[in-house]
Design a protein around this nucleic acid. Structure first.
Lengths: 210, 210, 210, 210
DNA sequence: GATGAATGAGGTTTCATTCAT
DNA sequence: CATGAATGAAACCTCATTCAT
């Protein structure tokens, strides 16, 4: 019956809203206190629900954190990076935009942080596995987007076609990360993001004659 | 009196030995179980001492882990990298050696891992601060070693003198890290270390005529 | 719905009962072993619940002890003293009753004991603060009850109106305490409670002509 | 040999000095942190000796605290009160002096505090027992001093001879304590020491004609 | 489906005390 | 005799998770 459908939709909607609240609270607490000091109780308290209720939505703390931090981050970033990719400009310009956007977004720092913060508990492993499966598609989309820019650059004669695309991507991501997550001791000195990017761009540029 | 000296030495020696045992055990357990599941009790049990004894040597779990993982790693790496730096070869060859050595050594992955695993607890922050103070000297030594190679390369005309040395170092370390610590999802595809290095070397190479 | 009410009441009731059990066990263990050797584990064991469960009811050991010893004692005493106050007899007779009742009840000894046993830890201070806020009302009631008796005595010409009521109360309580909590060394000799009381009563009695 | 004697005396002297340092440190730490948070390690650290060394002087923490707080306090107080007793003035004046001196000295508050802070551990009991034996003599001296003043007062017609001396002493001490150690909740209002004393003095005063 | 309540498992840390040197 | 080092015992507390209602 249509009545049933409406009720169902309503419930669905409420469920979605509550879920969203939980995710937001989790993200918030995590941002404030870090992974270890983020407790399910506090998240529940902020939402104003019982802790047990969270378990109706997420199988474990790890699963929640993965959903709240990794997945949401990822979706936002993919959307934004895609915006840059489909925009105007040559490959170099696009990579430049992407580079500075990702550095600013703190995307990679958060990923690294949560990966290691979760440690090696079986549950964390399981949450990761689930996450990876769920995100694989979007990860591919992300990688492909970048790959297309790179290949566009190769086709346009901007980048050296002799360098494999994965190598270029890894280099790009590596430098973004270098700029995002510092090694308190070895990487502490500040370096202009542009300078670092230039090294990269020059490294992948088409060789004049060689 | 010589008797005193002997006694003193004996104690010193025993203390050192026990300390070494603790460090080894800590490293071992950490390697097996990760930070969170490394418990003081287990470390003590492996050494065959009382848990409280560890606290006679280290103020906290954090302090122990920092000493066991970060400091020792650091000292080893500095020693070995220094060996490469003072050895034969031009700058490019040295960087190549260093690159592959550091990737293999897993040095940076362990650093990142422990930094984030320790989280943001006040105690961890304190342990970090202490660590940083203690390691600052050796960190400078490390950075200087690399800087000299880079500058040697500039002087010999291998590298572009227009690129600031810190930029080169950050790029180098960034790529080593990219190769060492993978983002389960975005960096998962394997790339030959050499290819990545070549992008870097080309990026910092002296420009023929430009 | 009435079903809800029943469920709610049931839970409420069970919660109250369990809470009561915890309080009783805490009081018991405390009476047997003193503050320091009263452990949360033992209390839980006596109730037959998990230690963590206690923490669902009380924020800390201090809070539990305050609730178990100070609050309950206080409520009982106020109830009983009130019974005396509203009963028959002139002020002198009432104070006599109250005096001997409070000495017998051990009320003040327990208070002193727990105040000092808890020491000066920040947590203890906090528990105290909380306790004081919660008990302020009942403390006022208690003081007021005594004050009324004293003032009745003044009005009836039994006590010297020139002596301020707080002074009389402090003297009364001081002597009750003197009789309740002995200084192992200086107060060890036994003295009939009545004799002590007489000194007090005479001290506050209306001066014939002076 | 006299040389031996000298050496012995020297050692004795050093031992005494060290002991004194330990006592002072114990008193200090106790004053700052209270009983529970006074650790043997901290006392030793302040003196600049090894913790184990304290055990050459005191059998246990309790024994040390008793010696450092109770005994020393007691000796000082007896000396000073004796000074008042052998001085000039009639019994009332002397008691007035003693009253205000003891209130100011905090003597009784400290006693109560440490008695209860030590709790009921067997070691504490043992320390107490030892303490009591050692202090019995001086305690008698103290009591006797006060008793003499009281009896002087009776003889001089100031105090009522019908009231037994122990009763008077207990009343006196009780009121001093009432003024010294407050019950955070019931005794919190301030009362002039003199007023309280007057109640007492009036209470024990010789009855004109009654 | 949400909740209140309970829990088990552990975890770090503290400290008085002892013993060989 | 003083000491450095070690220790055992315990204590409090946290937290993710489960289950009856």
């Amino acid at each position: 019956m249509s009545a049933d459908v409406v009720v169902y939709s309503l419930r669905q909607k409420q469920r979605q809203e509550r879920l969203e609240l939980i995710l937001q609270a989790a993200e918030q607490v995590y941002a404030e206190k870090g992974y270890r000091d983020t407790s399910m109780d506090e998240i529940a308290a902020r939402v104003g629900i019982a802790t047990a209720t969270i378990y109706a939505h997420f199988a474990s703390k790890e699963a929640l954190m993965v959903a709240a931090i990794l997945e949401r981050d990822f979706q936002r970033i993919v959307r934004d990076v895609n915006g840059i990719c489909v925009g105007e400009g040559n490959a170099t310009e696009k990579l430049t935009h992407i580079f500075s956007f990702l550095v600013r977004s703190d995307f990679f720092r958060r990923r690294v942080q949560i990966f290691y913060a979760m440690g090696d508990t079986p549950q964390a492993q399981h949450a990761m596995q689930t996450y990876k499966s769920a995100m694989q598609e979007i990860a591919h989309a992300f990688t492909d987007m970048l790959a297309q820019v790179v290949e566009q650059g190769k086709a346009d004669g901007e980048f050296d076609p002799a360098i494999a695309t994965p190598v270029m991507l890894k280099g790009l991501i590596g430098l973004i990360r270098a700029q995002s997550v510092s090694d308190q001791l070895l990487n502490h000195y500040e370096v202009p993001a542009n300078d670092l990017l230039h090294v990269y761009l020059h490294g992948i540029a088409r060789h004049q004659r060689e």
